[in-house]
Amino acid sequence: MAFFSFLNNTFLKMTWLNELVGKLVSDVFNISLESQLGASLQFFIYDVIKIFILLSVLIFTVSYIQSYFPPERTRKILGRYKGFTANLLGALLGTVTPFCSCSSIPLFIGFTSAGLPIGVTFSFLISSPLVDLASVILLASIFNWRIALAYVVVGVFLAVISGTIISKLKMEDQVASFIYKNSGMPELELEELTFRDRIETSIAGVKEIVQKVWLYVLIGVGIGALIHNVIPESFITAVLGVDKWYSVPLATLVGVPMYADIFGTLPIAEALVSKGVGIGTALSFMMAVTALSLPSIVMLKKVVKNKLLAVFIGLVVTGIIIIGLLFNQFAFYLI
């Protein structure tokens, strides 16, 4: 156990880095760590370096695993199962299939026109951005393993339940009509990847994601540093404190339209929790930001009709609020 916590502190939490940055701020910059500026600087520099190190290592590993699960293969696997099993597999495969929001529409069309039930496709579309392997490790780094595991379980659960309900509602007619016209969509042959191909893809993946998210990370950590050290705790707990029943719905509704990356939202969630905001409230905010965003809703609207879109948003929002309330209620088991 001591060995595990040593590994955890060294590689995940990087406590040594925090101390190093603390020395840099106090000895080189000559700013006291007790001061607002010093503490903010320490948090900012430490968090930015830590997130970029973890991000690079994680994206590399995750891209490597993902190279075994292209969406073409996922579609084939899912086609063999029915009912609840298909929804569960859809949600689980969503966590390992490479996914970028700009591909969500061709993916939706590809799955649907191949005859996969809409509910299964939605299970996949919900879990894919929400429960990303890299984000789970980051959650473990910032909070702890219990919270990270609980996050995976509720995320997959949300994806399975929402997809199952959409299946039960029989909404196949709620899909834009051109999709079924594509039912003769050609199945492309997948090339065999060599070890070198996979390594190259993984390195390209790291570059691409770092390019895409670095700004969100800087902004996220910046806001986190402000919350940490400048904005008074009394102000934050007055609005988002655990004792306020509306804190979870409020955090969720604020998060829904926002488009940001999970790596950018984690430092904000971290800072909020350190200021007395409930872990459930912070997680609701994070889940809402990653699962739904205005751009993704606008894109989805091109392929599904309003009723299905409303059901999808309604289910996800309700689910996130319930999850947040539960996490706040049972936080003492997790922290």
Partner: peptide, 13 residues
């Protein structure tokens, strides 16, 4: 156009 892209069988751009 997404529909045209999908008609080629492409799910990843």
């Amino acid at each position: 156009d997404m529909a045209d892209i999908a008609a080629y069988g492409v799910m990843r751009t």
